[in-house]
Each structure stands twice: as structure tokens, then as C-alpha cells.
């Protein structure tokens, strides 16, 4: 999104700052991550495929990515609702709630996991009322969705909120003047404007949830094939001193993260173009 493409940029410091950026990036991120790839290269292609597509590993992808998608959908729906309510309506406690939305960013994941397990286990504050209804949350795939929803919530709210603020009321007025009812205005005017940011928030929340570990081990049941997440499987491989197996699965996850981020960046590009 370069506004001016001037070749004779007068600002100084391009060389050193870009140089340092690339240097530091390589030192802290790229070289260490490359260790992962190199270690995996000890495996032949066949071994690699066999490791990353073993039934138990496949089941863990299903659990991890499945739960992350469900959590991201929940967040997309409620996140938009929360963002809308926070921007458009006035009610007591609004500012406090607004600040509270960032709690999952700030609360350490291990604390979040222990706390969620405490609340939603069969003898917990909420779990005890769910238990008679036959709903089990803690130690089931539902618990994984719950924790992932918790950690991903701020992403949707915080990406959608500014866009809601920017919506020109005149647009809505115009729609009303043209005879649209409220629902049509929402569906045909507002929703399309929010869509790029909703998708970005969705993708961010999804990407964060896929890699999550700290809060999940406390609340997932860790049952093989049922509620075992991929990061736990990496740990399991390590515990068996199977480093290459662990790095192989880690590589798959790394690739997934990288593609997610590329998509997010493209989405953001798209949404910025949309905004202009």
C-alpha cells in the first residue's frame, strides 16, 4: 500500500534499519526455525509422510483444526455482536467491558487453562449445572473449543470494532431513504463492509488457536484419537526420544501457520483496498 512510489526517497536510514530488521529476524526467528527443517531432513520422504499421516496424528489434526475452526466461528459470531454492542450502544459498564475484552491477551495461558478447568469441571461453578443436563465440558473436545474460544475472542472484537466505528451513518441513512428496512440495511450495506475484518479476525483467532498449548493441556482430556491436540503429540514424541518424529509434525504445523499468516496478510490488503 505504497501511496508514493518515489525513487528518490529523501528519508535516511533505510539501509541500516532494514539490515538490522533482517539480521534480528534471522537470528531470533529464521535460523532457529530452520533447525526444525534440517532436523526433519534426517527422515526420508517416505518416513516423513508415514510420521505425519499416522492415524493418531491425523486424528489430532482433526481435533486441533476442527476445534480451532469451531472456536473461530463462535468468535466471529459473538465477536461481531460484542463489537457492535460496544460501539453502537450506551449502557452502564461499557468501558469496563471494553477493557475486559483484552483479558485473554494478558492472562497467562496456563492460568487460563487451570481456571477454565476449575469453572467447567463437573464440580465447578458452571460445570455442576451442566452435568445434570448431560453436557460435559472439561476434559472433552468441548473443553478444547472452550479454551480456544477464550484465547481467540479479542482478535475478532479488536479487528471488527474499528471498522464499525468508521461506518458512515450517511450510508445507513441513504439506505433507509431508499426504502430499505433495518434488516436489509444490515445485510446489504453493513455486513459487506464488515466482512473483510470479520474474516481477518476469524483467521487470526484460528491461527492462534491451532498453536495453543498452555491452556489446553489443563482442560483437554488428552485421549488419543478423541481429544489429543497436535502440540501435545509433539511433546509425546519428544518424551519417547523421537526427535525426528517431533520435528516432522512440528514442520507440518509450521507450514500451516505460515500459510494462515499469508492468507491473513492478503485479507488485510484486500480489506484496506476495500476501505479506500
Amino acid at each position: 500500500m505504497q501511496f508514493f512510489k518515489r525513487h528518490n526517497n529523501v528519508l535516511p536510514g533505510f539501509g541500516p534499519t532494514l539490515g538490522f530488521t533482517v539480521f534480528y529476524l534471522s537470528l531470533i526467528v529464521l535460523i532457529p526455525l530452520s533447525a526444525l527443517v534440517f532436523r526433519t531432513m534426517g527422515l526420508t520422504w517416505g518416513e516423513f509422510l508415514a510420521t505425519v499421516t499416522a492415524p493418531r496424528v491425523m486424528a489430532s489434526y482433526k481435533v486441533t483444526f476442527g476445534a480451532a475452526i469451531i472456536a473461530a466461528v463462535i468468535n466471529a459470531v459473538f465477536g461481531v455482536l460484542v463489537a457492535w454492542v460496544l460501539v453502537r450502544y450506551r449502557f452502564p459498564g461499557r468501558r469496563f467491558i471494553d477493557a475486559l475484552v483484552d483479558l485473554p491477551f494478558a492472562l497467562p495461558t496456563a492460568v487460563a487453562g487451570i481456571t477454565l478447568a476449575t469453572i467447567y469441571s463437573p464440580n465447578g461453578w458452571v460445570g455442576r449445572y451442566l452435568e445434570p443436563l448431560g453436557i460435559k465440558v472439561a476434559f472433552t473436545p468441548l473443553g478444547i473449543v472452550l479454551a480456544m474460544t477464550f484465547i481467540g475472542l479479542p482478535f475478532v472484537v479488536r479487528t471488527v470494532q474499528p471498522v464499525v466505528e468508521e461506518i458512515e451513518v450517511e450510508l445507513e441513512e441513504a439506505a433507509t431513504c431508499l426504502g430499505a428496512n433495518r434488516w436489509q440495511t444490515l445485510k446489504l450495506v453493513i455486513f459487506p463492509m464488515l466482512l473483510p475484518s470479520i474474516l481477518t479476525g476469524f483467521a487470526l483467532s484460528f491461527a492462534r488457536a491451532v498453536g495453543e498449548y498452555g491452556s489446553l493441556i489443563f482442560i483437554a482430556g488428552n485421549m488419543p484419537m478423541v481429544s489429543e491436540i497436535t502440540p501435545l503429540l509433539i511433546i509425546t514424541k519428544l518424551e519417547q526420544f523421537d526427535y525426528q518424529g517431533a520435528t516432522a509434525i512440528a514442520c507440518v504445523m509450521l507450514l500451516a501457520s505460515f500459510s494462515m499468516l499469508l492468507i491473513i496478510n492478503l485479507l488485510q490488503k484486500w480489506s484496506r483496498r476495500y476501505a479506500e
Binding site: 526444525l36 492462534r208 520435528t247 496478510n265
Partner: peptide, 23 residues
């Protein structure tokens, strides 16, 4: 470059720690 800078944000923490052990 921007995507690479973002990368640590979505890498599983387990992997983030493990890469340093590998080195």
C-alpha cells in the same frame, strides 16, 4: 518480510521452545 515477522505469533509455543533446544 511482514509475514515472517508475524510468524512467531502463530507458531505453537511448544515449537518455539523446542527450536532452541535443537540448536
Amino acid at each position: 518480510l511482514i509475514t515472517l515477522i508475524d510468524l512467531p505469533f502463530s507458531v505453537s509455543p511448544v515449537i518455539s521452545g523446542f527450536i532452541y533446544v535443537l540448536i
